Simulated scan of single mutants.
Amino acid sequence: MRTKNLLLALGFAASITSCSSLKQSQPHASANAEIRQLLGEQAACWSNGDLACFMTPYWKSDSLLFVGKSGLTYGWEQTMANYKLNYPDAAAMGKLTFDLKEMRPLATETVLVVGKWHLARTVTEGDVEGHFSVIFKRFPEGWKIITDHSS
């Protein structure tokens, strides 16, 4: 009888733990799906030559941090200006695809995304690709990129 009660108690505890971890993972699954959708839309914007649309997921703040081959850039406006300078037209922009490698929750409202980007272009520079890590933070208006490190 004692063994039976012990097994029932352990089974009950395991089911509570299982339900608890399921509840914790559901917000992360939802966040990951929302972020994947944003990145898909962002790649489509780029591929259509629409930088303003591409910049929509970025935090429109002077505190946005972009790290690239030229070093650190602070702020949404400067990041946009750099994109315009380096990609002056749709041909230079090419077609963008992302290959997401990992998504890690850093906190309840913050997610790290690591992946690979590829630009298919017909211009003389040809195709280019590299890796990126972005940090998304949930704001009242939705998920926004607060830090982007692309190489």
Score class of each variant (00 low, 15 high):
residue 123 V to Q: 02
residue 14 A to G: 01
residue 33 A to D: 14
residue 43 A to I: 09
residue 52 A to Y: 07
residue 55 M to C: 13
residue 145 I to R: 01
residue 133 S to V: 03
residue 102 E to A: 06
residue 97 T to G: 07
residue 98 F to A: 01
residue 46 W to N: 04
residue 150 S to E: 01
residue 144 K to E: 05
residue 32 N to T: 13
residue 142 G to N: 06
residue 122 T to P: 00
residue 137 K to E: 05
residue 74 Y to F: 14
residue 23 K to D: 08
residue 52 A to V: 12
residue 101 K to E: 07
residue 98 F to K: 04
residue 83 Y to A: 09
residue 104 R to W: 00
residue 75 G to M: 07
residue 120 A to T: 15
residue 79 T to H: 12
residue 87 Y to P: 01
residue 32 N to L: 02
residue 10 L to T: 00
residue 98 F to N: 02
residue 44 A to G: 09
residue 127 D to Y: 08
residue 11 G to M: 12
residue 10 L to Q: 00
residue 28 H to N: 15
residue 116 K to Q: 11
residue 89 D to M: 11
residue 139 F to W: 03
residue 136 F to C: 01
residue 8 L to K: 05
residue 16 I to M: 08
residue 95 K to T: 13
residue 84 K to P: 02
residue 56 T to W: 05
residue 68 G to A: 12
residue 146 I to V: 15
residue 123 V to Y: 02
residue 41 E to H: 10
residue 47 S to L: 10
residue 100 L to S: 00
residue 62 D to E: 15
residue 120 A to N: 14
residue 44 A to D: 13
residue 137 K to A: 06
residue 28 H to R: 14
residue 122 T to N: 12
residue 28 H to S: 11
residue 37 Q to V: 11
residue 7 L to E: 10
residue 106 L to V: 04
residue 62 D to L: 01
residue 45 C to N: 15
residue 54 F to T: 07
residue 81 A to G: 03
residue 33 A to V: 08
residue 18 S to W: 11
residue 94 G to S: 10
residue 45 C to R: 07
residue 43 A to R: 13
residue 80 M to A: 09
residue 79 T to M: 14
residue 71 G to T: 00
residue 104 R to Q: 13
residue 58 Y to L: 08
residue 44 A to S: 14
residue 30 S to W: 12
residue 73 T to R: 03
residue 134 V to F: 11
residue 133 S to C: 00
residue 144 K to T: 00
residue 30 S to I: 14
residue 101 K to Q: 14
residue 105 P to T: 08
residue 46 W to H: 05
residue 77 E to Q: 15
residue 117 W to H: 01
residue 55 M to T: 09
residue 4 K to V: 11
residue 136 F to Y: 15
residue 47 S to C: 12
residue 140 P to C: 02
residue 131 H to S: 05
residue 82 N to H: 12
residue 92 A to L: 04
residue 7 L to H: 00
residue 122 T to V: 09
residue 40 G to F: 07
residue 99 D to T: 12
residue 47 S to Q: 10
residue 126 G to N: 10
residue 21 S to C: 08
residue 120 A to Q: 13
residue 19 C to P: 01
residue 65 L to V: 15
residue 108 T to E: 14
residue 102 E to T: 03
residue 75 G to V: 06
residue 103 M to V: 04
residue 141 E to V: 07
residue 51 L to N: 09
residue 102 E to M: 05
residue 104 R to C: 01
residue 24 Q to H: 11
residue 79 T to S: 15
residue 12 F to V: 12
residue 47 S to D: 08
residue 129 E to P: 00
residue 29 A to G: 06
residue 85 L to W: 01
residue 94 G to M: 11
residue 32 N to I: 11
residue 40 G to I: 05
residue 110 T to C: 10
residue 56 T to S: 09
residue 122 T to W: 03
residue 68 G to N: 06
residue 102 E to R: 06
residue 1 M to F: 10
residue 123 V to H: 03
residue 38 L to D: 03
residue 67 V to I: 15
residue 21 S to W: 13
residue 132 F to C: 00
residue 51 L to A: 10
residue 22 L to S: 10
residue 85 L to V: 00
residue 127 D to M: 07
residue 105 P to D: 12
residue 139 F to Q: 13
residue 124 T to V: 11
residue 140 P to G: 05
residue 45 C to I: 02
residue 58 Y to W: 04
residue 66 F to G: 03
residue 122 T to L: 05
residue 22 L to G: 07
residue 48 N to Y: 08
residue 41 E to M: 12
residue 140 P to H: 09
residue 51 L to F: 09
residue 119 L to R: 05
